[in-house]
Design a protein around this nucleic acid. Sequence first.
DNA 1: CGATCAGTTGAAGGGTCTCAACGCGAGTGG
DNA 2: CCACTCGCGTTGAGACCCTTCAACTGATCG
Lengths: 274, 274
Amino acid sequence: MNNSIQSHSGQPLGNVALFVPAHGACGERSTIADLLHLMGADDLDVRTAPVIPVPMRRLHAGEGLFREGARAESIYFVRSGTFKIFRTAEDGYEQVLGFVGRAEVLGFDAVCSNGHPTEAVALEDSTVFALPVRDLFGFAETSPALGRVVHLAASNALTRQGELADVMAAVAAEVRLARFLLHLSQRMASCGQSPRRFVLRMSRRDIASYLGVAHETVSRSFTALAGWLMVKVDNRDVEIIDMTALRAFSRSTRRQLDEASRSCMPHPVAARAA
Amino acid sequence: MNNSIQSHSGQPLGNVALFVPAHGACGERSTIADLLHLMGADDLDVRTAPVIPVPMRRLHAGEGLFREGARAESIYFVRSGTFKIFRTAEDGYEQVLGFVGRAEVLGFDAVCSNGHPTEAVALEDSTVFALPVRDLFGFAETSPALGRVVHLAASNALTRQGELADVMAAVAAEVRLARFLLHLSQRMASCGQSPRRFVLRMSRRDIASYLGVAHETVSRSFTALAGWLMVKVDNRDVEIIDMTALRAFSRSTRRQLDEASRSCMPHPVAARAA
DNA sequence: CGATCAGTTGAAGGGTCTCAACGCGAGTGG
DNA sequence: CCACTCGCGTTGAGACCCTTCAACTGATCG
């Protein structure tokens, strides 16, 4: 609802929307306080934060934030929009490592190395706060609250990475997709949006790469889950119609899949009502 | 790439072994300085660190450090030994998420949540520094160097988690194993040990869980790699005898596997000479 | 309207999972 | 000392799921 302002109204050229009049955090003259507020810091910390400018950057859908191997100049905090982070193999194959949304950190894995080990592109029009790495430590001393926020964000990123393992751990493709959808659902809920109905910001290929399966398999898995009447899928619109069943199914390991599918649906029917 | 004779370039904790202090770090009365030294902080920072005790804990092989779901009391820094971190499914299946060695952080993903999302057990006799979470922020203010170290360790943990994605991304089991061995090799090198010859601290089952394949497949993959004359395997002793071939093979994505295997070895011969 | 891409579905082949058996070493107690 | 058990590691055979190649639809775009 809040991000229905997507403004996908084309305008290929026109003035680059880097400068926006800005009320509060929307302007380019955002400060640490805005960043702290985004990350859910205490009001007191936000109000008492030192007035240090933190550049904000706007990206259009498909625009890259940083490239693989690029010097790590900043870490980023997503203010709005969605990003996919991935790695490109030598033969051009894209391995998607995760999807990052509001109030999450981007590029933190570059802090300990010379360059970004991954690449990030916006899946929709997005805005991020950029925190220069060289200032990271200094700012953290100036504003203890910022240090806390960075620690929490890093821990959160680590937890998020754990979700990938959780997804890849499932042997069956349908289970992987189910877990993925549940993770998405949880994150939607944590952003105050509906956990039952949401729009996928990424393509089937991105999902496939993230799940570690072929994109055709993702399609088939979607129709399978729809066949079990757990979800309803219309292109990128997803609605979870049986959360408990989806949850139970996502817990399947190994050949428990057979039981689950048999008990729910001997053969996937075409539940394709619009 | 690793032509650096001096220290292990590219590694965040490069100059760990250059400076060996007395047995100060070995006592139970270790302080922040010992922790900083372990993590490769600057000499100046180590010497000027506030004298705050940091409890050290010894664990025997097989002993658990923290359980899944347990209250996150501390984060840990591995001083010696190896740990495996994993998650246990409801049906008892263990999903291994990673293996953690010297100068790496353990349990940081619990900072942002109420409890540890994972479990950690020692694979061999090990020692860790325990840094209470509630003191984390306070100490970071007292000792800026500690804040830096924690940031670096967290970033490193994130990078390490990325390795799991790298491994799982490969479709072929042999490629997964090859990448896993290379990651291990790199980490051995960063600890000052031989990157060509090392001992696996974990069982085949642990490796299988980490790679996301059946443990029988791990066995077959080991014999396959030995058949291509890339490695020599004797139980848990591994020797990489053709690093370049292993590297090239590990880059395989999709059906490039066929080419690689054909060019190296039409059919795996029994190269099992001791 | 032709081109390109995302998404879906079908058919065939192959890699991995599963079940099964075997050898081996360690720990145990007769 | 040796039989016994148990877990680890290896190897074999069949079933099955996924990958791959292929064709088709619909949408976007110049």
